[in-house]
Write a protein that binds this DNA or RNA. Structure first.
Lengths: 350, 350
DNA sequence: TTGTACGCGTTATCAC
DNA sequence: GTGATAACGCGTACAA
């Protein structure tokens, strides 16, 4: 046994009388070792209590099966759900994921990435939008981004445009007098911006009256309550007696607006129909269940890892296309719930 | 440059004319290298584009700075929040975390652990209760569990008993006629069971009328809606015209009950006061903000990593107490919100 | 089928 | 200060 009280191939070799090579082959190409000898080695393993050392294996083979994951936060359900789905591809691909969260400065994110690269990660999944994709591409390993600017790297994104269309067409189907989109001002290059474009295009093409309420809402319920309340008051003033179909930028916002309505009316009046985005838990747990557009998080995660695995394999085989960005788009799914029923769904279960 | 197009100490050595040893010392004990030579090496680093290889360092030093984390799920806010907090200790302790989620069978969890051990992890944080702590202790590396059975390993837990007392005393302060605890049947050995004991003890000691509603509620909003609705109907029948103070086992349950109430009354009537547990986002996003007992997740996570770091250091120094379990308990914090105000907080902002 | 010899990139132990 | 040399534990020609 070596100094660090680790059992090594050497120990098994001297115990069994074989060479280290044979022990190595026993693990990697068992067929090339006699059944008899396999038994003897197996016995030695148990006797010595061998535990394999992947680190040494990595160094020798140059394959770590490490993949880095960088996320902005896990407090939003969307990201934590995405992370679980990514982690759970372990069974299929065997990648071990080293996760970093919460970098807000480009400088810090670069430190993370360098740290990850030092661990010889074979690929990187990025959900932050702190670093431009050009910098990411410069890492010289396969990178897949999810729902962010992706010009120079591969990516998987939700079809946000289609999501916007799905949301507003659900509202339109329920005979709204006015269609309203409530959102924060956003950079046009982030994928979520396309939701708004889908909303507008649909309204224009179908000659439906619509209105945009663009306010700085923030991303947490607390920060958004007042601005959403203001937006609500504005709707009440601007469109009294009209049936208002509101497409909110996400479910948290939709829930916030719903709460404003209930606090005023005690129920969901027929002049309001709401659609959110994300199919987050709050959409089901709200006082009235919220119709929403759900990104297929499981599909997105699987596609991201699958795409990454492909790129990793291409790179290992020296494929010249390994560096060529591939962009996948996943269509979202519409969930019709109580907030678009157009009747006060009193005393019903969700 | 080596085959795998990695720049190594050897490359820097031949570029600068020094030996590999000097390059190594340049990184680890810079003082022992002349300023002049440091500059020359720095220049070489830039010229060659050197990137450090932690895997080789691990093999040579025997220190990975890897820590394994095993969680049941990330879909519940409690776990995802705990994971972020753990991950974010990176800045302080430098541990890289390899995360596994979703093992339900002891067999699968053992496979995960063996995989982690093969990566030479220095410690393990476990939040699953799939494996008994006796098995975990047998891993022969420092283990810290959070909020689970912990007889044979170190742990950090919430003071659940105190949490139960805090919750019910808040209700008691608001002159309830009957105190009700709503919960699922639970194993007595899981830490959360103590919440119930705290509730009962407080009621008994203060001679307050109380009642337990123990139903199989499940852990998701969907599964719990019907049983909670039944519990609500039961309260309406059993205690009409009485002021009911309900301590729910968690915020999701409290929100579910709150929704049942609002759907019936359109507001929160004065005969109901609710307290949840966990201070999860839903407690702030519900139609009326829910009073709750918050586990100090940030503190728990920090203490867990700190405890683990201590045990790791003790083990490395051959301290005989390295294997002795240490149990830390973190007191929860009470959040008083609208559901215990006892008046219908109509049109107020949260 | 098995063994020898060397490489993976870094660190530790000595000498000088 | 610096440099040879031998670890660390495993993989892999190549030879036997």
């Amino acid at each position: 046994m070596s100094k660090k009280n680790q059992v090594t191939f050497g120990d098994i070799a001297s115990y069994t009388g074989f060479s280290k090579t044979t022990i190595s082959r026993f693990f990697n190409k068992p067929d090339t070792v006699t059944k008899d000898h396999q038994d003897r080695i197996n016995e030695a393993l148990a006797a010595l209590g061998y535990k394999k050392n992947k680190v040494a294996q990595i160094l020798a083979k140059g394959k770590t099966e490490f993949v880095g994951v960088i996320l902005p936060t896990l407090s939003l359900h969307y990201f934590s759900e995405m992370l679980v789905r990514v982690l759970n591809t372990y069974r299929e691909y065997g990648y071990k994921f080293i996760v970093f969260t919460g970098s807000n400065h480009a400088e810090e994110e670069e430190r993370y990435i360098n740290e990850l690269l030092a661990y010889q990660i074979e690929g990187l999944i990025v959900m932050n939008h702190t670093l431009p994709s050009e910098k990411l591409a410069a890492c010289n390993i396969p990178v897949v981004t999810i729902e962010r600017e992706d010009q120079f790297v591969s990516s998987v994104n939700c079809d946000n445009y289609m999501g916007g269309v799905q949301a507003v067409s659900l509202l339109a189907k329920h005979n709204c007098d006015i269609l309203i989109h409530l959102n924060s001002p956003a950079y046009t290059e982030i994928p979520a911006y396309r939701r708004r474009v889908g909303f507008i295009d649909f309204c224009e093409e179908n000659h439906l009256p619509y209105s945009l309420i663009i306010k700085d809402i923030g991303s947490t319920y607390e920060t958004m309550y007042l601005p959403v309340k203001e937006a609500f008051d504005q709707m009440e003033t601007d469109y009294p007696d009209k049936i208002k179909g509101v497409f909110c930028s996400n479910d948290t916002t939709a829930n916030c607006l719903l709460n404003c309505i209930i606090r005023k009316y005690g129920t969901l009046p027929a002049q309001y129909r709401l659609v959110g985005f994300d199919n987050s838990p709050i959409a089901k747990e709200a006082i009235y269940t919220i119709s929403t557009v759900g990104q297929q998080i499981d599909v997105i995660a699987r596609e991201a890892v699958s795409l990454l695995a492909e790129k990793i394999s291409m790179k290992r085989n020296g494929d010249p296309d390994a560096g060529t960005p591939v962009h996948k788009v996943i269509t979202p799914v519409l969930y019709c719930r109580e907030t678009t029923e157009g009747v006060s769904p009193e005393r019903k279960s969700p």
